[in-house]
């Protein structure tokens, strides 16, 4: 019983997160402006990190935790670099 409850809530959570990633991906593809695409990409990173944590709970291994941490960190660096690029036209001055 408890296994079924957990299993189905994880599946539902993963479906919700996949829907969220689809919304973010639409924003990345459609824009309309460059900052909208960067924002969509940032949302995509965060949703991916949450999805990896959910997958870790589903499989019962803490291995996916490190992957989620790396995605969260790289997502921040990527968004910061792209915001800087939108402002100045170059990343390193």
């Amino acid at each position: 019983m408890s296994g079924a409850v957990l299993h189905w809530s994880i599946v539902l959570a993963q479906l919700l997160l996949a829907f969220g990633m689809a919304c973010a991906a639409y924003r990345v593809l459609r824009g309309p402006r460059a900052q909208d695409r960067v924002l969509g990409l940032d949302t995509l990173y965060v949703t991916t990190a949450i999805l990896l944590l959910t997958y870790g709970i589903r499989t019962g291994t803490t291995l996916y935790f490190e992957a989620a941490l790396v995605i969260a960190l790289l997502g921040f660096v990527g968004t910061a670099a792209m915001a800087k690029f939108l402002m100045r036209g170059e990343v390193i001055e």
Partner: peptide, 12 residues
């Protein structure tokens, strides 16, 4: 997951 999905839906 619901909050994250709602936030992403807000992008649309």
């Amino acid at each position: 997951a619901g909050l994250a999905a709602t936030g992403a839906l807000g992008l649309l």
